[in-house]
Design a binder for these strands. Sequence first.
DNA 1: AGTATCAGTGTCCACTGGACACAGTTTTTT
DNA 2: AAAAAACTGTGTCCAGTGGACACTGATACT
Lengths: 238, 238
Amino acid sequence: MGGEHAEVVRLLWGPHPKPARGPRPTLDLDRIARAGIEIADSEGLADVSMQRVAAQLGVTKMALYRYVPGKAELVALMVDAAIGPCPAAKVRRGDWREQLEEWARQLLTVFRQHSWALDATVGPRVMGPGELSWLERAVSALDGTGLSGAERMDAAVLLVGHVRGITQQTRAAGPGGNPEAQLGTILGDLMQEHGERFPALTAALASAAQSDGQDQAWDFGLQRILDGLAALIDRRAR
Amino acid sequence: MGGEHAEVVRLLWGPHPKPARGPRPTLDLDRIARAGIEIADSEGLADVSMQRVAAQLGVTKMALYRYVPGKAELVALMVDAAIGPCPAAKVRRGDWREQLEEWARQLLTVFRQHSWALDATVGPRVMGPGELSWLERAVSALDGTGLSGAERMDAAVLLVGHVRGITQQTRAAGPGGNPEAQLGTILGDLMQEHGERFPALTAALASAAQSDGQDQAWDFGLQRILDGLAALIDRRAR
DNA sequence: AGTATCAGTGTCCACTGGACACAGTTTTTT
DNA sequence: AAAAAACTGTGTCCAGTGGACACTGATACT
């Protein structure tokens, strides 16, 4: 169990011993990951293939297999490099709510910049140092709140889930048009034809038509989660 | 815009006019979707190919293209058939919290039965009648709470995000072992080597080691979200 | 110098999603 | 009844994918 993970762990966490003999490598893991990220950012994850990445680096596809055992590992490297290390907090320590809110906004920004990372992070996987640094900051923001270790981690996971959910329904909406309107348009067309089967939905949609907040769903969910955490923390404090 | 969606909308929502002339079709969309689901359930979405599905149905792969324009549409059909129509609520109407909680648990069950549906539902897509029926029930549970239409939908989306997040970190953990322990083991191994870089995480992990609730993360997040919603609804009521 | 080691190339394979022409079956029209 | 039209499933073909493997060179230790 977990033996198959050993390889990707070594790739993500090192060490990376440089060879003693033989010709010098033309590539390195970092350049490979960055090349893949460049393609994924501009053309989507589906267009990331060994050939494509190799071409980007001016090399044959098989050369990549000298550095990376397979495509799965390549993608794992790309994800961790794209998510990157979590930037340091700017708000004062001690206020967990402000810290978590800033953290969530930063995470959302990163996910929006590399929205292909969503596709590449379905299912449980080995996390790299970048991804773990994000988790670290979220958990540390909750230090001293009276929450147990498991609860602090659960809270972080909950927030990540929201970020992912929002990223999912946001992306592919052109940078100009707001995503809720786009979703509403598609839904509205369907409701016009099958509305009688979904009365509550049509009503909600009609009432939601004039609300035009850019990030309404994001802020709503974020505040609800933070409210829920605050309620628990208060209860514990008493 | 949206013109490319027309085909999948027709597939998901009908109508499906039966041909007037020519030999009778051996297949229908429902059988095709179910064959795909069967494969995905037992072997994962990656093993669902046109050939594989066709073989399951005792037919050539190209025969499928008479019913479905491409693989993407096949998967869309599979998803909506697998998610299925939302079962009717068993708890009394009026208590939104109880209703939403039951709804979320049912949705989690469905996602766990077909965990490949996660992979197939990244990115915004056209929803089918099954998927919409779930949304309908969640929104209708919030009727009369004083929340606006947009807010009711945002709440549903928030809950779906949590269900997805939990499904994601749950799956591939054998039915016996609880997922948190598995995640903890992998994380623990990493912390042992690089723990000094993640002090808060190591502390939280150590404290979380003895907590062994099977669905701890699930219940925690669910209650936090519902608490947050309750707080808002109370505030509005006053 | 000699040799083990390692990098990048070229060739091969099974498989994927999909295009297309074709033969066979059924219904409508003449 | 006969012919035409419409439709289904099949066979064949193609570009592209991830990956295996043998090979030619370049490099550094002995």
